[in-house]
């Protein structure tokens, strides 16, 4: 397993380089223009000058190599400088600059990270914590009332997109409920809010309820369905009968043997989902104005901001590759028969 991990880690480097090239080509090929969002009153010669100043018209290869150098060399150096206070000679070097804000892309990402991790991360955690018990109980008591209700809610939850469910909860909790009521919730997420004491924590909690719940609904639906299906598969296996026959208690049989063997698809889904925490939830962030990484990405795409799109997508790619590797390692731990060597 150890040699497998090392080999895979080494292999990720060429994989990621290739992915970065493909992402770059797609982003550059797609019809986008950093001056596309400007008012029509700005004439085309001026637009051309702006593009020239941004370096949009340089040859593709030059732009790609420049991005590689900035992302893999300059930005880590600057990060190191900030961390240690050493002078590594980055002064005056052109950093990875966003077309829209003319500021370093990495700073933008760092700025957005907290709210995305808080909101989307919490939603994921809540989603998993609700989904696993629902999935397990639903499978164990198949076709019980609990199972039927769980199925119904999770299916509705998955087929109602957040652009609708988000607006629905806003109308219910921010518009219909009067704003002086205890149950009123803010419809606009305040990203400048800082938690310093109990009162401010309560406000933070209130403003997180709606976005977290809307996101968690989707996540719960997905994970609980896979858990249930996988548990059902295993509950009818011979080894369960054997365990019961040996006189093992029901809870040990289910929680230890069945659950462990059912976790492979669940681990896969969760491993695919964790990078998306970083990717943010584009629609939910828009609906509640959380303005995290998802909103940064969508604005950058609409604004033809190639450096931002490229960098964000690439970091996302790194996480995908890493978490899929972690999933593969976990398979081996869950089921020792699985071998990669």
């Amino acid at each position: 397993m150890f040699t497998f991990t090392i080999r895979r880690l080494i292999l990720t480097v060429p994989t990621l380089l290739f992915i970065s090239l493909v992402i770059f080509l797609i982003v550059k090929l797609s019809p986008s223009d950093p001056t596309g969002n400007l008012p029509l009153t700005i004439p085309s010669e001026v637009r051309e000058q702006i593009r020239e100043a941004l370096g949009v018209n340089k040859p593709l290869l030059v732009q790609y190599l420049l991005w590689l150098k900035q992302f893999f060399w300059l930005e880590p150096l600057i990060y190191l400088e900030n961390l240690t206070g050493w002078d590594l000679g980055t002064e005056g070097k052109v950093r990875l600059i966003s077309y829209q804000t003319r500021s370093p892309v990495m700073d933008l990402i760092m700025q957005r990270m907290p709210q995305t991790l808080t909101v989307v991360g919490t939603a994921y955690l809540v989603g998993i914590l609700i989904a696993l018990p629902i999935g397990i109980i639903s499978a164990y008591k198949q076709y019980s009332v609990f199972d039927q209700a769980g199925t119904f809610i999770s299916m509705i939850g998955f087929s109602v997109p957040p652009f609708f469910s988000g607006v629905l909860v806003i109308v219910l909790f921010s518009v219909i409920i009067p704003s002086d009521s205890f149950f009123w919730l803010p419809s606009i997420y305040d990203t400048t809010h800082e938690v310093v004491d109990w009162e401010s924590f309560k406000y933070q909690f209130r403003q997180m309820i709606m976005p977290v719940m809307v996101l968690a609904l989707q996540i719960t639906a997905q994970i609980s369905r896979f858990t249930r299906a996988s548990m059902l598969d295993n509950l009818n296996q011979d080894y369960v009968r054997t365990a019961r026959a040996k006189g093992m208690s029901e809870s040990v049989t289910v929680m230890k043997h069945v659950l462990r063997n059912s976790m492979i698809p669940v681990v896969t889904v969760i491993a695919l989902g964790i990078p998306s925490i970083f990717g943010g939830a584009i629609i939910t962030e828009q609906v509640f104005k959380v303005n995290g990484l998802g909103q940064l990405l969508i604005i950058a795409i609409q604004g033809g901001d190639v450096p931002t799109v490229q960098t964000l997508t690439f970091i996302f790619a790194i996480l995908i590759v890493l978490f899929n590797l972690i999933a593969d390692i976990l398979y081996g731990l869950l089921d020792p028969r699985i071998r990669y060597d």
Binding site: I301, V321, N324
Partner: peptide, 28 residues
């Protein structure tokens, strides 16, 4: 086992592709 590496790295690639620009490229 021989196909695993290649196929799964391709899957990683597709997972990483930015959806919106990709769709715009497809349209174009």
């Amino acid at each position: 086992k021989r196909l695993d590496g290649l196929l799964m790295r391709t899957t990683d690639l597709f997972l990483a592709l930015p959806l919106l620009p990709l769709l715009l490229v497809i349209i174009m």
